[in-house]
Design a protein around this nucleic acid. Structure first.
Lengths: 143, 143
DNA sequence: TTAAATTGAATTTAGTACAATTAATCACCA
DNA sequence: TGGTGATTAATTGTACTAAATTCAATTTAA
């Protein structure tokens, strides 16, 4: 035991978290390429498939992304014709994001994405549930 | 139960993994700012504090980073005077990365980083160990 | 000994993150 | 009621990270 042990890679919890996150996002890539979305764009669309209309602020808090990150993502998705951006009449500071028909249509194509990932993570249902709980704990949302 | 359930954000395991990773890296930032390192630079230095000399290739496999990501990181650390980059005589394709005295000296300052993070993650030792194991499982390295 | 295949790093291009700025709204009090 | 300062939300600028492509060195096979 020496004083530098806390600086060893193998003693870090953050490092495997960081690496695993990138690893899994990388695994999504081939499926997401087929529908021409990045991972960030994909989770954004997930919210819109549930909500149809949402403010940028709400999106940010759902996805844990700040507005500086979200702005270019939303502009890109607007370019693709999957959503529209407008200002909320009641408070023009708020950006209102609305899904388009093309955006709704993409949902059916996107069904293949979780299908393709199913075999990728070799965790048992119990392990997956435990991991899920621990991760939301870190995110400050006890489940 | 409808066919779109697999596309709900709350049913994803990848999403909290992605979000938690960014969340924790964000928590490191204030500590890392004090020693003028990004998180990626920090984990790179961690390897060099253990090894002193390592090829770029080995670094990549230890950190799960590819050379395209590593090249700018190593150049930046060289600029800061924390390491030197040279070619391996036996095979000039290999980039040899060596820590400098300044790099070694930084280790003592870096001790404050894990100290500062200690209170940030409110996981019990058992939970931390479980998470650690699950993450390395995803990384394909059973522990 | 040379051509083809492989390996490793660097470059290019795109995406993501943070800090600083700008615009809109709100709250307070004269 | 109207104005001033504080707050909130998004955007912009800059830096970092990631993936795909390119280029150079090496190895292998003919």
């Amino acid at each position: 035991m020496n004083k530098y042990d806390t600086l060893k890679l193998e003693n870090q919890l953050c490092f495997p978290l960081y690496a695993a996150s990138r690893e899994v996002v990388r695994k999504y890539k081939p499926s997401l390429d087929k529908i021409d979305l990045t991972y960030t764009q994909y989770i954004t669309m997930m919210v819109l498939w549930e909500r149809e209309e949402v403010t940028s602020k709400e999106l940010g808090s759902l996805l844990f992304l700040d507005s500086g990150t979200l702005t270019p993502v939303l502009k890109k998705l607007e370019e693709k014709g999957l959503l529209t951006r407008s200002r909320q009449a009641s408070d023009e500071r708020n950006l209102l994001v609305s899904i388009t028909e093309a955006g709704k249509a993409l949902r059916d194509e996107a069904l293949f994405v979780p299908e393709g990932m199913a075999g990728c993570l070799t965790l048992s249902p119990e392990e997956a549930a435990a991991l899920y709980r621990l991760l939301y704990h870190i995110l400050g949302k006890q489940v």
